[in-house]
């Protein structure tokens, strides 16, 4: 079987592209659509750097066969800022020094967005659980957890 046409709604834009059988959503996002915020870390769902929102839920995009989600909606980090303005999670990460090398950051932010979409006022434990699938090698996690709680507070005030 040759490549198939896949339709996705990515960051609120309809995208149509070809995918070879077995291509992951991550590969389609990065290599075909040029959306490189989602990272290729471990290719087995263990590091979380490929985290995106699929139909509103956080998933490891390296483990999604893109042909099986034809018609779905996907949100990546590129779709988080509104009209060029960083959202509360992004601002909180920047101002809270919650990023060093930045490799885990897109996945962490998407996991945070997924959490706050469902649970706008999470406890510290709930934040920790939401990012339990995301590995960070630089920060020791504390600033990231603080930034997500800070983002929740900022969003509540907005």
């Amino acid at each position: 079987m040759a490549s198939q046409v896949v339709n996705l709604r990515v960051n609120e834009r309809s995208r149509e592209f070809l995918a070879a059988p077995g291509t992951s959503l991550l590969s389609s996002l990065r290599d075909t659509l040029g959306l490189t915020a989602a990272k290729r870390g471990c290719a087995q769902g263990g590091c979380g750097t490929c985290t995106v929102l699929l139909d509103g839920r956080a998933v490891m995009s390296c483990l999604v066969a893109v042909q099986t989600v034809d018609g779905a909606s996907v949100r990546t980090l590129e779709g988080v800022a509104r009209d060029g303005a960083l959202d509360e999670v992004q601002s909180a990460f920047l101002e809270g020094f919650a990023t060093q090398c930045g490799f885990c950051t897109p996945g962490m932010i998407m996991a945070a967005e997924a959490l706050l979409d469902r649970n706008p006022d999470p406890t510290r434990d709930e934040v920790v659980e939401a990012i339990s699938g995301n590995v960070c090698r630089c920060t020791g996690y504390g600033p990231i957890v603080d930034a997500i709680l800070d983002a929740a507070a900022r969003r509540a005030k907005a």
């Binding site: 471990c42 263990g46 590091c47 920790v128 659980e129 339990s132 590995v135 996690y141 504390g142 990231i144």
Partner: peptide, 16 residues
């Protein structure tokens, strides 16, 4: 594999 390379997560960090 990567999953089996053990590192503490956000739930395992001490007070600093």
């Amino acid at each position: 594999d990567f999953n089996e390379y053990l590192m503490p997560g956000a739930a395992d960090i001490p007070e600093y």
